[in-house]
Each structure stands twice: as C-alpha cells, then as structure tokens.
C-alpha cells in the first residue's frame, strides 16, 4: 500500500522534498515505515530519537498502524514562539 509523507524543517532536506509517496507492506506500523526510510536514506538513522510523527493530522506513537492513503508527517523538534 502507499502512504503520503510530509516532512518539515530540517527533515525536508533529508527526505529530499516536502512530500513523497512511499510503499509499505500491508499492516505496516510507523516504526516499519521509519525502518524503510532509514534503509533508503541512512541520514535518517541518527534522527530517530528526536523525530515525532503525525498520522492524518494527529500526533501518534510509532506503534500506530498505517492504512492505504494515510498522510504521515515527519517532524523534527519544534521551534515556535
């Protein structure tokens, strides 16, 4: 199945753009998606601890299960204010 990735701030540079589609196995979790990203771009590896995820506009933990067409946001530490 295919999910849509959004990446913000410094993670956009690592992803190579603000948006991308990624194929993952049916039943994959965010942790599985992250492992796939790290395989494709090893620069993601050291960012695991600081990256937060949103699924369809809501903050979620990385055991969240993905569905076809989901929008997954990759977010580095916030810097608002």
């Amino acid at each position: 199945m295919t999910v849509r990735l959004l990446a913000f701030a410094g993670l956009r540079d690592v992803l190579g753009g603000p948006k991308r589609e990624l194929s993952v196995a049916d039943g994959a979790t965010l942790a599985d998606l992250w492992a796939e990203l790290v395989r494709a771009r090893p620069q993601f590896g050291p960012l695991e601890g600081s990256t937060r995820f949103a699924l369809n506009g809501r903050l979620v933990a990385r055991d969240a299960t993905l569905a076809e067409g989901d929008e997954v946001a990759l977010m580095p530490p916030f810097g608002g204010g």
């Binding site: 913000f8 608002g80 204010g81």
Partner: peptide
C-alpha cells in the same frame, strides 16, 4: 506553545 505546537 514552544514545547508542543508544530512550528519550526
């Protein structure tokens, strides 16, 4: 806001 809001 500085801790939790998705702004960079």
């Amino acid at each position: 806001l500085k801790k939790r809001v998705a702004v960079w």
